[in-house]
Write a protein that binds this DNA or RNA. Structure first.
Length: 264
DNA sequence: GTAAATGTTCGGGC
DNA sequence: AGCCCGAACATTTA
């Protein structure tokens, strides 16, 4: 489920624990979400610490406990975060639960494509610092985007939009939305976009990211009326502009929906 | 029973 | 070395 705006929404779902002291941690150590992590160390480092802050960058989240415990979360395909009142008993897919005196913060992920990271140190972990600016931020300039496109000239543009090293936070539905709003055919090779299309792509990318954050990040509301979003889930969807039946195919390994009239 | 699902990561080929 | 593709990961839902 989670792309840029949904990730920001879920990050906020743990806010009720901010400033409070952790009582204990419950986790499922043998699940895939903890790959590469020493879960005993993680649980011990977080226990008794104060939940000091949280951040989101692209599809990654970072949570700080005490002075030097950092927990990173990625929601994968099916992850989500929520707060539960006590008493609370974790269910089958609640792989990571942080208990406070009155609430529990829960990370659930049925498919386990998500991931929990753990780092210790005074400053933010290295992997976090390497995440590039998301399209809604000022640092995502047209030049930054164009330079990134130039490094992936043989990829279909749809696949390029999915690369987190250049479009941090953009996922499958956002990529389709961006290309539809920009009027660009998803199979077009990245290196074949004209200067005009590149400029339009940049505008649409920023627009989709910003509007998605406005509508989804605080209330999990629907994206604006008239967006492809509302049509792309059902086979039988039509273009919001003139009702042509949408096309559907696999591009860059993912289901891709587009309007054959608007996007060539 | 089968296919598909809002995401990464790895290995192999070029 | 860098780029690109396809398979793999684990589970639920249509």
């Amino acid at each position: 489920m989670p792309e840029l705006a949904e990730v920001e929404y879920y990050r906020r779902q743990w806010d009720p624990g901010l400033g409070k002291r952790v009582a204990r941690v419950e986790l499922h150590p043998d699940t895939r979400v903890f790959r590469g992590v020493d879960t005993r160390k993680l649980a011990a480092a977080v226990r008794d610490q104060r939940f000091g802050g949280s951040w989101a960058r692209g599809k990654q989240m970072l949570f700080r406990f005490g002075k030097e415990a950092w927990v990173g979360l990625h929601l994968g395909m099916t992850g989500n975060l929520r707060t539960e009142a006590l008493p609370f008993t974790p269910e089958k897919h609640d792989h990571f639960v942080v208990f406070f005196p009155k609430v529990a913060l829960v990370f659930r992920d049925a498919r386990q494509f998500g991931r929990v990271r753990f780092d210790e140190g005074e400053s933010e972990p290295e992997w976090w610092r390497r995440i590039p600016a998301s399209p809604h931020e000022a640092a995502f300039t047209k030049k930054v985007m164009a330079d990134f496109l130039a490094r992936h000239r043989r990829l279909p543009i749809k696949a390029t939009l999915l690369l987190q090293t250049g479009f941090a936070g953009v996922g499958n539905w956002m990529a389709d939305e961006i290309l539809w709003q920009a009027g660009i055919y998803p199979m077009r090779l990245t290196g074949e976009l004209t200067a005009r299309e590149t400029a339009q792509l940049w505008r649409s990318t920023r627009n989709v990211c910003r509007k998605a954050l406005e509508t989804i990040a605080t209330s999990f509301g629907d994206p604006p009326k008239g967006w492809l979003f509302h049509e792309r889930w059902s086979r039988k969807g039509v273009c919001p502009k003139h009702k042509r039946v949408l096309k559907c195919a696999t591009v860059g390994g993912r289901t891709t929906v587009w309007c054959p009239r608007c996007q060539r």
